[in-house]
Nucleic acid binder design. Structure first.
Length: 856
RNA sequence: GCCAGAGUGGUGGAAUGGCAGACACAGUGGACUUAAAAUCCACAGGCGGGUGAAAUCGUCGUGGGGGUUCGAGUCCCCCCUCUGGCACCA
C-alpha cells in the first residue's frame, strides 16, 4: 500500500473506511469543556439525476469549517439528510408506475453514496428523511400545534390552479403566471384550502431580521416580501345610502386631491352600490376580471381598464361627492381592496384619470429645483396636466372644519390629517403588509397527510397525538384526478373514520402538505433524530440551537427561509425552542455555471457542436468562431459536470479543492475542468514533498520559519473569513517554497502544513499524517498557532515615489524611522534627478511600504 | 419602473487608500525522454522605443466621465452594462 505515487483512489477509499468504522465524526451532546458549533447544509432533494457539481460547493465549504472548528476544540454538529417528499418523484411514478417510495429510496442511496465519496465529516447516525414516518409524525404534530394555536384554517380562496400538474401552487411557486416547476400555465380558481396565518407573524418576521448575520440582499428580499407600509384607513360614506367604504392609503395628507374612488372588481360592496343603469357594464367587467389570470392582469399593465358603478362617495375632508369606479388595477387582496384616487400625485391614478377623463386636482406644488431636475413643468402639475410624486408644498388642503395642512411638510401633514380623521371617527392610522397567508395544501399524493378528519357534522377533528403518524396510504393509482380532487380521494377505506367511543363518522383530509413542511424544521430533528417521544429533546435543543452557520443556495431566500422562521417562532411561543430565530448566520453559495460558447448572434451552442482547435473554439457545422460564455448547466447545452467523473479522474480531494479555489464562495463561477488539473498538480506536489523529500529534524532557517508562520496566519485568518480560495493560494505558495528535488523538509514544516491542508483535502491530510509516523486520525489534532515574531523581516524594499510616480526601490531596515527613510531615499540618483531644481514641499512616509516626496 | 449585487490580462481570480494582476488555468520557450505522458525550469497586461536576443526605459491601463487625496481598483457624484429579486401592494 505504501507507494510513492499519489494514488488518490486507494487513499480516499482507505480513509473513508477508517472514518466510518471508527465513527470518527460521531458527535456527542453536551460535550463538557467544549464550545458548540452547529453547522448546517441545506439538505438536498434527492433527484433522479444524482448530485451535480453545485451540491458539493456548499457542502465542501461547511465541511472545511467543521474540520477546522474540531481542531480548534469545538464540539461540532454537522448533519445531513433528505428533503424527499415532492413532485418529481410523484410525476416519475405516474409516468413509470414505480411507487414514489421506491424511487425516493433509490435516489437517496445514490445521493448518500455520492456524498460519502467526497469525504464529508457528517455524523451519519443523525441522518433524517422527511418521508420517513418516524420523521413526518412530528411534521404532523407541529401542524396540530399550529391548528390548536389558531394558525391553521380552511378557507375558500382563489388559488393558483395548475391543470398540467393537477394541483394548486403557492403564490411563491408561480412565476409570470406559470408554474415554477415545469413552466406550465396557471389559472385562478376558487377552492377550499388549508391556510397558515403567517401574516400574524409579519411584524416579528420583519423586525427580527435586524439581528441576523445574513447577507444584506437576502434580508432586503424578505423585507420586500413582507412589504410593510404605514398609512391610514379612511371611511368614505356612499351618497344616498347607509353604506360606507374604507380605503387604505399611505398618503392620508393627499385626501384633498382625491377626485374619485376605485374598488377592486371582487369588492363585496360592488353589487350593492351599482346603479341599475351601470349594472350590465359592471357585471360584464367583473366577469372578465375573474377570468383573467394574475398574469393577464399584470401583463396588460400598459392600459388601464375600469367601469363606473354609478355611485358616489363623500370625501370626508371636503364633503364633495366623487364617483366610484371598479378597476382591476386595484387588488382585492391588499389593503381594503379599495382606494381613494389622487391622480395629480399617483402615476397609476393619473393614467386612469386620463383614460377616463376624470378630474385631476393638484394639491402639492412641486419643489422647483426637484421638478427642474426631473424635467417636469410646475405649471403643468398645477394645472393637472402632469403627475407629481416628488416633494413639494401642500396647497388647497384646508377645510372649514379645522383641518389646514397647507404648507406643511409631508410627515406633519400626514399626522395632522390622520388625527383629524380619528377625532371624527372616520379614519385611523393603519399598517399593512404585502405578505399573504400561506396556502398550505396541495392536491398531491407524495406529501405528508394532514392529521385531520372532517366529521359528518361539519366539524374538524385532529388525529390524536398518540395515533400519529397518520401514515400515507399505499395507492395503486396516484394520478391527479384533474378535477382538483387530490389523489388521496381514491384511498378507499383509509378515508373512513369512526370515533371509537361515540361512533361518529368522518372522512380524512385528502390534501397533503407542501414540500416546504418537512424542510421547515429538519434542523431541529438533527438535534435528536431518533427520539420517539418528542420531536426533539428540549435540553438538547437548548444546547445546540441556534444554528451557527447555515449554507445553501440563494433560491431559498424567501420561501424556505421565511417559512422556517415562521414555524420556529410559533414553536418558540409554545415554549418548545429556546431561540426566536433558527439561523444566526447565513451564507449563500453562488451558482456554478457550465462551460459553454455562443456564436456571433449571441445564441448558445450545445457543447456537442463545439470543436476545440488551437486558435479557439469553432462550430462543427457552420465553422464559425465561438466565444466562451458560461451558462447555467443544462441537459440541452450538454455542459453538465458529474462529480463522479471528476472524482474518478482526479479524486475527491481535488474536487473539493477546486470548488473552493474557483473564487469566493458567494460568487457565481464558471466550471472549468482544466482548473481541476491545476489543483490536482498542487496535491501531487504536496504529496511528493512530504513523501519523497527527506524529512529532517533540523530547525527551520529564518526564511522558512517566516513562510511557515505566514502560511499559518493566512490560512487561519482566511478560514475565519470563509475566504477559502486565498487560503489555498497561500498553501500553494508554501509548497512552491518548500518543495524541490531531494530538498530536506523540516519535520515541523511538514506536520504543520499537513494539518493546515487537512480540512481542505482530508484524505490526503490523513494519509500524509500517517506517513509522518502518527497512528491516529488528525481530525482532533490542535490547530497550528503562529507567532507574529517570526513574520518580521530585517530589511524591506521601500518604494520611493516623487510626486506619486515610482522612481526607485531601496532596501531599508524594517525599523527605519521617517528621517532615515527620507535620507536613504534622497541618496538615490533617480530620486535626485527627479527632484532637480524643485523644492521639497512634503514627504509622506508609510513605514515598511513607501515614501512619497512632493516637490515643485 | 423599483430594490440588491457585480464590472480588473486570453480565462478563474488577488489586492487594511500605498509598487494592480498574488495564486492558478490556458499560452510560449527550454530541460528530461527514442517518443509521448508525467515532471522540472524560464517567460508572460497593452502599446512604443530599444536590442542579435535581452535587461533597462517611456507610456497607457481595474466599464465610461467627473471629484476628494501626496497617492484611488478601493472613498464621493453622474452615466453605461450585466446578474439576481420584486413589480398596478395605493
Amino acid at each position: 500500500m505504501t507507494t510513492n505515487e499519489y494514488d488518490f483512489t486507494a487513499i480516499e477509499k482507505k480513509w473513508q473506511t477508517y472514518w466510518e468504522t471508527n465513527k470518527t465524526f460521531k458527535v456527542n451532546d453536551f460535550e463538557a469543556g467544549k464550545p458548540k458549533f452547529y453547522c448546517l447544509d441545506m439538505f438536498p432533494y434527492p433527484s433522479g439525476s444524482g448530485l451535480h457539481v453545485g451540491h458539493p460547493e456548499g457542502y465542501t465549504a461547511t465541511d472545511i469549517l467543521c474540520r477546522y472548528k474540531r481542531m480548534r476544540g469545538f464540539n461540532v454538529l454537522h448533519p445531513m439528510g433528505w428533503d424527499a417528499f415532492g413532485l418529481p418523484a410523484e410525476q416519475y411514478a405516474v409516468e413509470t408506475g414505480t411507487h414514489p417510495a421506491i424511487t425516493t429510496e433509490r435516489n437517496i442511496n445514490r445521493f448518500r453514496q455520492q456524498i460519502k465519496a467526497l469525504g464529508f465529516s457528517y455524523d451519519w447516525d443523525r441522518e433524517v428523511n422527511t418521508t420517513d414516518p418516524g420523521y413526518y409524525k412530528w411534521t404532523q404534530w407541529i401542524f396540530t400545534q399550529l391548528y390548536k394555536k389558531g394558525l391553521a384554517y380552511m378557507a375558500e380562496v382563489p388559488v393558483n390552479w395548475c391543470p398540467a400538474l393537477g394541483t394548486v401552487l403557492a403564490n411563491e411557486e408561480v412565476i409570470d403566471g406559470r408554474s415554477e416547476r415545469g413552466n406550465h400555465p396557471v389559472i385562478r380558481r376558487p377552492m377550499r384550502q388549508w391556510m397558515l396565518r403567517i401574516t400574524e407573524y409579519a411584524e416579528r418576521l420583519l423586525a427580527d431580521l435586524d439581528g441576523l448575520d445574513w447577507p444584506e440582499g437576502i434580508k432586503e428580499m424578505q423585507r420586500n416580501w413582507i412589504g410593510k407600509s404605514e398609512g391610514a384607513e379612511v371611511d368614505f360614506t356612499i351618497a344616498g345610502c347607509d353604506e360606507k367604504v374604507t380605503v387604505y392609503t399611505t398618503r392620508p395628507d393627499t385626501l384633498f386631491g382625491a377626485t374619485y374612488m376605485v374598488l377592486a372588481p371582487e369588492h363585496p360592496l360592488v353589487t350593492r352600490i351599482t346603479t341599475d343603469a351601470q349594472r350590465t357594464d359592471v357585471d360584464r367587467y367583473r366577469e372578465e376580471a375573474a377570468r383573467k389570470s394574475d398574469m393577464d392582469r399584470t401583463e396588460l399593465n400598459t392600459e388601464k381598464t375600469g367601469v363606473f358603478t354609478g355611485a358616489y362617495a363623500v370625501n370626508p375632508v371636503t364633503g364633495g361627492e366623487i364617483p366610484i369606479w371598479i378597476a382591476d388595477y386595484v387588488l382585492i387582496s391588499y389593503g381594503t381592496g379599495a382606494i381613494m384616487a389622487v391622480p395629480a400625485h399617483d402615476t397609476r391614478d393619473f393614467e386612469f384619470a386620463q383614460t377616463f377623463k376624470l378630474p385631476i386636482v393638484c394639491i402639492i406644488e412641486p419643489d422647483a429645483d426637484e421638478a427642474a431636475a426631473e424635467g417636469v413643468s410646475v405649471d403643468d402639475v398645477l394645472a393637472g396636466r402632469a403627475c407629481w410624486t416628488g416633494n413639494g408644498r401642500m396647497i388647497g388642503s384646508a377645510n372649514s372644519e379645522g383641518l389646514d395642512i397647507n404648507g406643511m411638510a409631508v410627515a406633519d401633514s400626514m399626522r395632522v390629517t390622520t388625527e383629524w380623521l380619528a377625532a371624527r371617527g372616520v379614519g385611523k392610522a393603519a399598517v399593512k403588509y404585502k405578505l399573504r397567508d400561506w396556502l398550505f395544501s396541495r392536491q398531491r399524493y407524495w406529501g405528508e397527510p394532514f392529521p385531520v378528519i372532517h366529521m359528518e357534522d361539519g366539524s374538524i377533528r385532529l388525529v390524536d397525538d398518540n395515533d400519529l403518524p397518520l401514515l400515507l396510504p399505499e395507492l395503486e393509482d396516484y394520478k391527479p384526478t384533474g378535477t382538483g380532487e387530490p389523489p388521496l380521494a381514491k384511498a378507499g377505506a383509509w378515508l373512513d373514520y369512526t370515533d371509537p367511543v361515540t361512533g361518529a363518522k368522518g372522512r380524512r383530509e385528502t390534501n397533503t402538505m407542501p414540500q416546504w413542511a418537512g424542510s421547515c424544521w429538519y434542523y431541529l430533528r438533527y438535534i435528536d433524530p431518533r427520539n420517539e417521544r418528542a420531536a426533539f429533546d428540549t435540553a438538547k435543543e437548548k444546547y445546540w440551537m441556534p444554528v451557527d452557520l447555515y449554507v445553501g443556495g440563494a433560491e431559498h431566500a424567501v420561501l424556505h427561509l421565511l417559512y422556517s422562521r415562521f414555524w420556529h417562532k410559533v414553536l418558540f411561543d409554545l415554549g418548545y425552542v429556546s431561540t426566536p430565530e433558527p439561523f444566526q448566520k447565513l451564507v449563500n453559495q453562488g451558482m456554478i455555471l457550465g462551460l459553454s460558447y455562443k456564436d456571433a448572434r449571441g445564441a448558445l451552442v450545445p457543447m456537442e457542436k463545439v470543436e476545440q482547435r488551437t486558435e479557439g473554439a469553432f462550430h462543427t457545422e457552420t465553422g464559425e468562431k465561438l466565444v466562451e460564455f458560461p451558462a447555467k448547466m443544462s441537459k440541452s447545452l450538454k455542459n453538465v459536470v458529474n462529480p463522479d467523473d471528476v472524482i474518478r479522474e482526479y479524486g475527491a480531494d481535488s474536487m473539493r479543492l477546486y470548488e473552493m479555489f474557483m473564487g469566493p464562495l458567494e460568487a457565481v463561477k464558471p466550471w472549468n475542468t482544466k482548473g481541476v488539473e491545476g489543483v490536482f498538480r498542487f496535491l501531487k506536489r504536496a504529496f511528493r514533498m512530504v513523501v519523497e523529500q527527506p524529512i529532517t529534524d533540523d530547525p527551520l532557517d529564518a526564511e522558512q520559519r517566516r513562510l511557515l508562520h505566514a502560511t499559518i496566519k493566512k490560512v487561519t485568518d482566511d478560514l475565519d473569513a470563509m475566504s477559502f480560495n486565498t487560503a489555498i493560494s497561500q498553501m500553494m505558495i508554501f509548497v512552491n517554497g518548500f518543495s524541490g528535488n531531494a530538498k530536506p523538509l523540516p519535520r515541523e514544516a511538514a506536520e504543520t502544513f499537513v494539518l493546515l491542508l487537512s480540512p481542505f483535502a482530508p484524505h490526503l491530510g490523513e494519509e500524509l499524517w500517517e506517513r509522518l509516523g502518527h497512528d491516529k486520525t488528525l481530525a482532533y489534532e490542535p490547530w497550528p498557532e503562529y507567532d507574529e515574531e517570526y513574520l518580521k523581516v530585517d530589511e524591506v524594499e521601500i518604494l520611493v515615489q516623487v510626486l506619486g510616480k515610482p522612481k526607485a526601490r531601496v532596501m531599508m531596515p524594517s525599523s527605519a524611522d521617517e528621517e532615515t527613510m527620507q535620507r536613504l531615499a534622497l541618496e538615490q540618483d533617480a530620486v535626485r534627478e527627479a527632484l532637480d531644481g524643485k523644492t521639497i514641499r512634503k514627504v509622506i512616509c508609510v513605514p515598511n511600504r513607501l515614501i512619497n516626496i512632493v516637490a515643485n
